[in-house]
Structure formats: structure tokens, C-alpha cells
Amino acid sequence: MWNFLIQIGVALVLSAVSYALKSNKYDKPTASSLDDFDIPTAEEGRVIPVVFGTVLLTGANVVWAGDLKVTAIKKKGSKK
């Protein structure tokens, strides 16, 4: 019985401490740009890695990736 009450007391104390230490700062979200993503590039003279096994390669070198552009999303209100 006492073990259960001690656990409840510890849980309440830890909850109070976490509430007291929480940050009230909220960062505003920023829009992503093409520089934020690790997209494949096409560069002459770039080193080609030699990989054995399963490895995640970031920033692969490709011949052509298409026309990359940023388009803003415009949300229109809907009528009910």
C-alpha cells in the first residue's frame, strides 16, 4: 500500500518539476526553401563513393534532375 502511495507522490512531484521547467518560447515556423533539402546535384569532377553493403548516400550525383522551383501554396476558403 505504501509503495503505491510513494509512486503516486513521486509522479506528482516529477510532473510539477517538468511543468515548472518547460519553456514558454515557441519558435514561429519558417517556410522551407530548396537550400533546406539535400537534393541530388550534377557536378563535373565530383568524387564517386565506393560502397560495400547497405549505406545511405546523401546528395547523389545525377545527370539531370528537371526544373526545380518553389511554388507557394495558396489556400482558398471553402464554402459550405
Rank of each mutant, 00 (worst) to 15 (best):
L14T: 14
G77R: 09
K76L: 02
L34S: 13
Y19V: 05
E44I: 01
K74M: 00
S32F: 12
L68F: 12
G53H: 05
A11L: 15
L12N: 09
L57E: 12
F4Y: 14
L57M: 09
V50E: 08
Y19R: 11
L14Y: 13
K79I: 10
A72G: 03
I39L: 15
S32H: 10
I48V: 06
L5Y: 15
S15M: 06
M1E: 13
S78Q: 08
E43D: 03
S23M: 01
M1G: 13
A16M: 15
V70Q: 15
T30V: 08
A11K: 09
D35M: 00
I8F: 11
D38F: 01
G45W: 11
I6W: 12
L57Q: 13
K28T: 06
D67L: 05
L21S: 12
I39A: 02
G66H: 05
T58Q: 15
V50F: 09
R46F: 02
G66L: 00
S18K: 09
F4W: 14
F52P: 00
S18F: 10
T54V: 05
V55R: 11
A72I: 01
V13S: 14
P29A: 10
D38E: 05
A65D: 13
V70L: 10
W64T: 04
G59V: 04
A31W: 03
I6Q: 15
V50G: 00
L34H: 04
G45V: 03
V62R: 09
V63N: 10
K80C: 02
K22E: 06
W64Q: 12
V47R: 08
P40A: 10
A42V: 00
A20Q: 02
W2E: 08
V55F: 10
K79E: 06
F37P: 00
A72P: 08
V50D: 08
A72Y: 06
T71H: 07
D27A: 11
K22L: 07
N61S: 11
V55P: 00
W2H: 11
F4N: 15
G66S: 06
F4V: 12
K25L: 04
I39Y: 15
V50I: 03
A60L: 06
E44D: 06
L5H: 12
L57K: 04
K75Q: 11
V47Y: 08
L12S: 14
I48D: 08
L21H: 05
I39K: 06
K76D: 02
K75H: 05
A60P: 03
K69F: 12
K75V: 11
V17G: 03
G59A: 02
K76N: 09
W2S: 05
V50Y: 12
R46V: 03
G53S: 02
A65H: 04
W2R: 11
W2F: 10
R46C: 00
L34Q: 05
T30G: 03
V10K: 15
T41N: 04
L34W: 13
S23K: 09
P40C: 05
Q7G: 12
V47H: 08
V10G: 03
S78V: 02
N3W: 10
V50P: 00
K28W: 09
T71C: 02
N3G: 14
T54H: 09
A11N: 14
A42T: 10
G66D: 01
F4K: 14
V51P: 01
S32L: 13
E44A: 04
D27W: 07
K28G: 06
E43N: 12
N24E: 07
